[in-house]
Design a protein around this nucleic acid. Structure first.
Lengths: 199, 199
DNA sequence: TTATAAATCGAACGTTCGTTCTATTTTTGT
DNA sequence: ACAAAAATAGAACGAACGTTCGATTTATAA
């Protein structure tokens, strides 16, 4: 790897650290330069614009996300097992990232700020939702979940429980161990297994 | 009302508009001055610091939130009816605010930024959660919900469904009419009525 | 090794930020 | 109506922002 790409990776690692532990708005070129011991202009030359830096950080974050929470799931034997494993690893991801998900932060910070960054984070989150939904569909096909399960509704509820878990833990509604998430998830799955009717 | 308080209210209305339609970070004194046709210093004199402005906007937003989604539910006959009514009005609130809740935005933007603003928004969200939880407790007491219902778990799930509904609608996971939220909420309530067992 | 290319720096730019002054205008109470 | 008080304006500040540019150091390939 050339020197350029090498330092760029280090810069991105530092940038991700700032963006997650602080926020995307606080990821500033001057601050990042200080954090990496570089000059503003030297660092800037790697990206040529703030927007490119932001996009690169999101790409970098996605890469790590896939490595740490998606790839390890491939070993699980069934779609439902994959799904549950993802939820587990997902929590670990958030925990490592100092209790704030960079994608969700970015989504909120850019939600009314049209541009390439908003488009990217939107597509990243949508991609995750589609992947989760795909697992649900497969689980239904393999009869791990009841045939009358509405996949999208299931995915929506699953994702919501996760989102709520993070949010309420932050607010202080007593879910620091995320046990509430686990319980609700377990019940959600049980509700869709064992052929008892439910729309 | 004195001239000062009067213009201050107008300023706050404009500030809330900016904070919701844009974001809290984009609520800047210069921008707000332009929006209200005042000078920066003239406007600044009303608050004496950016932080005070932010706190005032959150107070103002809470006031409006209470007026538009909490107060009207007082007329509902029962705790459960109040709860459902709140969910309905709540959606209206979000819709008016251009599909972004100022409290949740503020929570995310300030989540790792210690200070009075973070403390306030945290307490505001916690207060809402406690109020919802109180209604759930009352509904259980009045046997509108099954006796074995775990109130906090119920509140957690309810709130999560709402959060998820907003998030996914933004991302584009097809819930623009929030019908998914309605369905999930209905099922959540049904699940806790009619004495069938569920932990 | 040496020429070329890539990477990095330092200084400066125009803006905008929050904030602080000192005036000046406008409202208020008597 | 007038004096006191409150509200607003204007100009300026230091700092930080993203960005540009020319010079200089460092890595790469011949």
């Amino acid at each position: 790897m050339s020197k350029g790409k090498q330092t760029k990776q280090q810069v991105l690692a530092a940038a991700l650290q700032i963006a997650t532990s602080k926020s995307f708005n606080e990821l500033t070129i001057g601050r990042l330069a200080t954090a990496t011991g570089m000059s503003k202009s030297g660092l800037f030359a790697h990206f040529n614009s703030k927007e490119n830096l932001q996009l690169a950080v999101l790409d970098y974050a996605e890469q790590i996300f896939i490595e740490t929470v998606v790839i390890p799931t491939k070993e699980e034997p069934s779609p439902l097992a994959k799904l549950l494993k993802i939820c587990e690893l997902w929590q670990g991801w958030y925990r490592e990232q100092a209790y704030a998900c960079i994608f969700i932060s970015a989504a909120v910070e850019f939600d009314d700020q049209p541009g390439a960054v908003r488009d990217l984070v939107k597509s990243q989150l949508l991609e995750l939702l589609h992947y989760l939904n795909e697992l649900v569909v497969e689980a239904i096909a393999k009869k791990e979940l009841d045939a009358h399960t509405n996949a999208k509704q299931f995915t929506y509820e699953l994702y919501s429980l996760y989102l709520g878990s993070q949010h309420m833990s932050w607010v202080g509604f007593e879910d620091n161990t995320h046990s509430r998430f686990h319980l609700a998830l377990k019940q959600l799955v049980e509700r869709h297994t064992g052929e008892k009717n439910e729309q």
